[in-house]
Simulated scan of single mutants.
Amino acid sequence: MNRTASDRGRDRDEEGRARSARPRDGLGRPLPYGAEGVPRQPEGVVRGPDETLREAQRLLDAGMPFHAHEVFEDAWKSGPESERDLWQGLAQLAVGLTHAARGNAAGGARLLRRGAERLAGGPGSVSAAAAYGIDAAGLVAWARELAGRAEGAPTGAAGEPAVVDAATEAPRLRGDLS
């Protein structure tokens, strides 16, 4: 008999797509069923650029860069193609911070650098960043500096990976602190 994923007890969303119903912590890591987690970001929310930046900054400041990544992901999926590099670059910065905060220094550094390159490289991301008041140059510098620190961080006494505090390291998306 050929069993489907739903026959095996796989969690599904309202539209039938596979989606884990396990609660998550503030860095997006799955917790055991029944544990208390943080509320998930709803997916597929269409926001304007200002609302996207405000919500992502709120999440970054709260030490929840994984959730901020999901806000940026919605923006790149629903926004104009010409701004895709901007929103993808910002999402990569948020995921890079997530990995660094989880103790994955190499993965965090790689994503931070990839996001910085995307923000610095494409004319679409540079012009869109300027139009929305995003401090692209400051974010690029922040990402490269954090990537270098994450890679150079020593492991703890018991060999556990060094981690960064996501809330303390949260970047400012705009120079006006909004």
Rank of each mutant, 00 (worst) to 15 (best):
R40C: 12
R40W: 08
Q41Y: 04
P42N: 08
P42M: 10
E43L: 08
E43R: 14
G44W: 06
V45D: 07
V45E: 11
V46E: 01
R47L: 01
R47T: 00
R47C: 00
G48E: 15
G48K: 02
G48A: 06
G48I: 04
G48P: 14
P49L: 00
P49Q: 04
P49A: 05
P49R: 11
P49M: 05
D50E: 14
D50L: 11
D50T: 14
D50M: 06
E51A: 12
E51Y: 06
E51W: 09
E51L: 10
E51S: 06
T52L: 02
T52P: 09
L53P: 01
R54K: 11
R54Y: 05
R54G: 04
R54I: 13
A56N: 09
A56G: 08
A56Q: 05
A56D: 03
Q57R: 08
R58S: 15
R58Y: 12
L59K: 13
L59S: 03
L60G: 08
D61I: 10
A62R: 13
A62H: 10
G63I: 00
G63N: 09
M64K: 15
M64G: 14
P65D: 02
P65H: 05
F66A: 14
F66P: 14
F66K: 13
A68V: 03
A68M: 07
E70R: 10
E70K: 06
V71T: 01
F72D: 04
E73G: 07
E73W: 01
E73A: 02
D74C: 02
D74E: 04
D74A: 05
A75M: 06
A75H: 02
W76Q: 07
W76P: 13
W76M: 07
K77Q: 15
S78Y: 15
S78E: 02
S78R: 10
S78G: 08
G79W: 04
G79E: 02
P80A: 12
E81S: 08
E81H: 15
E81I: 12
S82F: 09
S82E: 15
E83V: 05
E83C: 03
E83M: 03
R84V: 12
L86R: 14
L86I: 04
L86K: 09
W87T: 07
W87D: 00
W87M: 04
Q88P: 09
Q88C: 09
Q88H: 15
Q88A: 09
Q88F: 02
G89I: 06
G89V: 06
G89H: 06
L90D: 00
L90I: 07
L90S: 03
A91C: 08
A91N: 13
A91K: 13
Q92Y: 02
L93F: 13
A94W: 04
A94C: 05
A94M: 04
A94R: 01
V95A: 11
V95M: 14
V95K: 09
G96H: 02
G96E: 00
L97A: 09
L97E: 00
T98R: 11
T98L: 00
A101N: 04
A101E: 00
A101T: 05
A101G: 02
G103I: 07
G103M: 08
G103K: 03
N104M: 14
A105I: 08
A105V: 08
A106C: 11
A106D: 14
